[in-house]
Amino acid sequence: MTKKLQRDRSALDIESSKQVDYLKDEVAYRLVDRLLDIKRKYDTIVDLGCGCGHVVKHIDQDITKKLLMCDMSEKMLERDKNMKFDVEVERIVVDEELLPFAENSVEAVISNLSLHWVNDLPGTMIQIQRSLKPDGLFLASMFSGDTLFELRTSLQLAELEREQGVSPRVSPMIDIRDVGSLLARAGFTLTTIDVDDIIVNYPTMFELIKDLKAMGESNAVLARRPFLKRDTLLAAAAIYKDLHGNSDGTIPATFQIGWKPDVSQSKPKPRGSATMSLKDMLEK
């Protein structure tokens, strides 16, 4: 509910929301570029956690005829409803933890920077796997491990100094090393995982925090303290600049993107089932 409210508020401030599309648009472009590596055209693709429509900007008729845009926030879904795209679009309000798709009914599911907010990630992956048709595709990007480590450490050090305690100010991200085991538990096969680091420079820590809020990516951990004192914030900004600042006075923010492409049906042959030896093949 907290995350839905944040996403609703972000979409309602249309001007600010559009100004911070840069990060999700860039990752969506990279996501679709990976989709192009799979030489297949789909009738329909499900875009799970689509936000305002970052993936659809890069999708064309060579990839799919129709994109099913799904998000928990109706306001985000409707923000750019008057825009025209290269493919047919249908918008549906969907909670990522309660997928409405029947078993073996979906050709492909993609997700761009949304799954890191799912409370029951293993459960969602199981639902995705069950909804896919045989040989269906699951392709996703999500914030992982070291995302915003500069902001996290700076806030922690400032709180320890000024308030003698630490509160989770930056939401925890999944360790990319754990993703493979989660996919395997969900029943996926032939999984591949890789990581990109995207570094964005900001004038100060305050511009970074402002952009995160406008993206709907603010901290949603229930155990966090509701307020952060002004002097703690100022101390954190100074620590950030001192520990991580660039020579030109700006500060970097690292967004670590984990990629999880998968084809869910094909399985390796059983050990010992080969009908020709490697030696014979090399001699040909």
Score class of each variant (00 low, 15 high):
Leu115Arg: 11
Lys57Trp: 14
Asp86Trp: 15
Val27Pro: 04
Ile92Ala: 00
Val56Phe: 06
Leu99Arg: 00
Val106Pro: 05
Thr64Cys: 15
Val32Gly: 03
Ala102Val: 14
Arg30Ala: 07
Arg34Gly: 04
Lys39Cys: 11
Asn82Trp: 15
Ser16Tyr: 11
Glu90Met: 09
Lys39Val: 11
Gly51Leu: 11
Leu115Ile: 13
Leu77Arg: 02
Leu77Val: 01
Ser114Lys: 05
Leu31Val: 13
Val46Pro: 01
Pro100Asp: 00
Met69Lys: 02
Lys41Tyr: 09
Val106Gln: 05
Ile63Met: 13
Ala11Asp: 11
Met76Leu: 08
Asp47Ile: 05
Glu88Ser: 10
Val109Phe: 04
Asp120Tyr: 07
Lys84Met: 10
Val55Arg: 05
Asn119Gly: 04
Ala28Tyr: 08
Tyr29Cys: 03
Asp21Trp: 14
Leu113Asn: 03
Arg79Val: 12
Asp80His: 15
Ala28Cys: 06
Asp120Asn: 09
Val106Ile: 14
Trp117His: 04
Asp21Glu: 15
Glu97Asn: 01
Leu98Trp: 14
Ser111His: 07
Val118Asp: 02
Pro122Arg: 10
Lys65Thr: 02
Asn104Leu: 09
Glu96Leu: 12
Asp21Ser: 14
Lys81Trp: 15
Asn112Val: 07
Val109Lys: 01
Lys18Leu: 09
Val56Ile: 13
His58Ala: 01
Glu90Lys: 04
Val55Ala: 06
Glu88Cys: 10
Val93Lys: 00
Val89Gly: 01
Ser17Glu: 10
Val46Asn: 00
Ile92Gln: 00
Gly53Ser: 09
Tyr22Asn: 14
Leu99Asn: 02
Cys70Ile: 00
Lys24Gln: 12
Leu113Arg: 05
Leu31His: 13
Leu99Gly: 01
Leu48Val: 00
Val27Glu: 02
